[in-house]
């Protein structure tokens, strides 16, 4: 049976009024009086007080002396709602990155935590700089000692970039389609390659499954690329970020796909 999901009335009650959301966001920082709420938000006294009444009636806030306090549960509800808001804002902000692109290979977990990518930047090629996405990646790899990557296609620069890292005793772990195995490895110096594999500095996982996502995790940054719905890789767009949360997000996705292949 297909599970039915439904929005409950509480969610609707919160989402319906920006004023209520604003009040909760203020009370969540610290308890406030009506007057303080009016000053802080620029919303009229009458709107604030009528919504305070509604919130208090439903037991979302409590008045102590002349200050309103947010209740434990409403604070959790509010934060969950804001988490959803942030995710939706992010999905909308990078609409052209997702839209008409294949996201089948993202795990449910990575979709649920999509907000971890909020500090990302969408790197796009321009007519004046058609290699911008590739060069961004190249630069990141050159500055890295460790990379983990899912390469669904082969760029001629990759073998050399990998060789550079193992040469300086760094670590490389890649997931590639089986038919790319020879293409990449034969281009890396045999002696260096064998030593790196032996020391565990070079790990290559191959798969006959289709890889529909491009992911590269460097020391400080992570970059994500997608395939278009028509099956071709979108070389013109790259989502990249250097915050800690997105690093973790990318690592989780990498491990998820590694377990799958």
């Amino acid at each position: 049976m297909i599970k039915q999901y439904d929005l409950n009335n509480e969610i609707k009650f919160f989402a319906k009024s920006e004023i209520r959301l604003k009040i909760l966001s203020e009370l969540q920082k610290e308890p406030k009086s009506v007057k303080e709420l009016v000053n802080k938000t620029n919303i009229t006294y009458s709107s604030i007080s009528s919504n305070l009444v509604k919130l208090e009636e439903r037991d979302y806030i409590t008045k102590k002396k002349n200050k309103y306090h947010i209740n434990t549960l409403s604070e959790i509800y509010y934060n969950q709602l804001m988490e959803f808001k942030n995710s939706v804002d992010l999905i909308n902000n990078f609409d052209e990155f997702w839209n008409k692109h294949n996201i089948n290979q993202l795990s449910i977990n990575s979709m649920q935590n999509i907000n971890d990518l909020k500090n990302s930047e969408l790197v796009e090629t321009t007519p004046l700089d058609i290699y911008r996405t590739h060069n961004t990646i190249k630069e990141n790899i050159l500055q890295s000692n460790t990379i983990k990557a899912i390469f669904p296609y082969l760029h001629p620069d990759y073998p050399q970039l990998i060789e550079n890292i193992i040469e300086k005793n760094g670590n490389v772990e890649i997931i590639i389609p089986k038919n790319m195995f020879n293409g990449i490895l034969s281009e890396i110096d045999k002696g260096k390659r064998k030593a790196a594999v032996k020391n565990g500095n070079l790990k290559v996982h191959t798969t006959t499954n289709e890889l529909n996502v491009y992911l590269i995790i460097c020391d400080e940054t992570m970059s994500l690329g997608l395939f278009k719905s028509d099956g071709s890789f979108d070389q013109n767009r790259l989502l990249t970020s250097s915050c800690e949360k997105s690093q973790k997000w990318a690592n989780d996705l990498f491990n998820f796909i590694k377990d799958e292949v």
């Binding site: 959803f84 939706v88 999905i91 997702w98 839209n99 996201i103 979709m111 999509i114």
Partner: peptide, 11 residues
Amino acid sequence: TSHGYLLATNM
């Protein structure tokens, strides 16, 4: 759409 699917997952 992919956009819609992301949205639904988060909903």
